[in-house]
Write a protein that binds this DNA or RNA. Structure first.
Lengths: 164, 164
DNA sequence: CATATTATCTCGCCGAGCGAGAAGATTGCC
DNA sequence: GGCAATCTTCTCGCTCGGCGAGATAATATG
């Protein structure tokens, strides 16, 4: 993303603040593209991958996963959620099982295959990121953590303001 | 995202590295959700918003914008690109004009309305982020910049490895 | 036991994006 | 100059992800 234009456009140096904004936006775009490429490579739609990530998170946290919960998390209605689960089940990433305590509910469990898929993709990415963070000093780690937390706060405030 | 389960799941503290990974992922997800909510509120699809951002960026940088360029940037084929531009043009965010130098081409220009839309949404978000960064010490700014740059490097390396 | 509520799924439809190819403009070659 | 190859954009037909409405089954409430 270097500037190839010979005649300087009307902002020679955006300053540290805007440069950080730009970096952060570029990072999120590139992460999205990476996820989309990975999804396509495994016959998944972006929504399917998001669903799978949510289910893997729930599994690790021990939170029970159901179609209703998942749909709310993804912003899908019940029909769309059913379709996502049908696709994931057909690919062998998810199993559906009736909840014995509330037989209206369906409990969702990710298969070994899905776990392996997630590990294979995110594992190295996470590993490198952890190594990066571990290579920082304690003060630097604190700075990065604080920055990310503050950014999440800003975004959350705007999400509320936008009526999210 | 606090942990409500009374019996502790098998990771009480993921450590600083994983905590950062979690924060970063949560931030990107929340930014995506915010963008999606904003898009819907203005009758745009996520792709339309991405296109609009790309066009606003190009306008600010002085780069000439054409359907072909935009389509490549968004990963759409020509038919899909035409559809996006039809939608944006119908909403009055973009105008199409033949390039007088190469009359095969169409030059895209964003309207005042689109600029105002982008400013109205991203302006405050960017403003707060800039204020946050400006509130840091020079060393802290450098740490954050370095972290984001390193993360982009990691993602870029994985994108190449994945055949992106 | 009747009624309201909750959770999930089925059906029909809309529309975003793709593949194939048409139409118009430019470039290159003779 | 004229003709073919190339490039840019648009049109047409199609697939399929997601939505709205409503059906079905199980649980809560009076």
């Amino acid at each position: 993303m270097t500037d190839p234009t010979p005649t300087a456009p009307p902002f020679p140096d955006p300053g540290p603040g805007l440069r950080t904004v730009h970096q952060l936006r570029a990072l999120t775009v590139e992460l999205d593209l990476l996820a989309a490429a990975f999804a396509q490579r495994h016959g998944l739609h972006p929504t399917d991958l998001r669903a799978l990530i949510a289910l893997l998170d729930a599994a690790r946290e021990g939170t029970p996963a159901t179609p209703g919960r998942l749909g709310r998390e993804l912003g899908l209605n019940s029909a769309g959620t059913t379709a996502v689960l049908d696709r994931l089940e057909r690919l062998g990433h998810v199993r559906r099982a009736r909840d014995p305590h509330d037989r209206r509910r369906v409990l969702l469990e990710v298969t070994e295959r899905a776990v392996a898929l997630g590990q294979g993709f995110f594992g190295p990415l996470i590993g490198e990121t952890v190594a990066l963070v571990d290579g920082l000093s304690a003060a630097e780690r604190e700075t990065v953590q604080g920055f990310l937390a503050a950014m999440r706060g800003i975004v959350a405030r705007h999400a509320d303001a936008a009526g999210g």
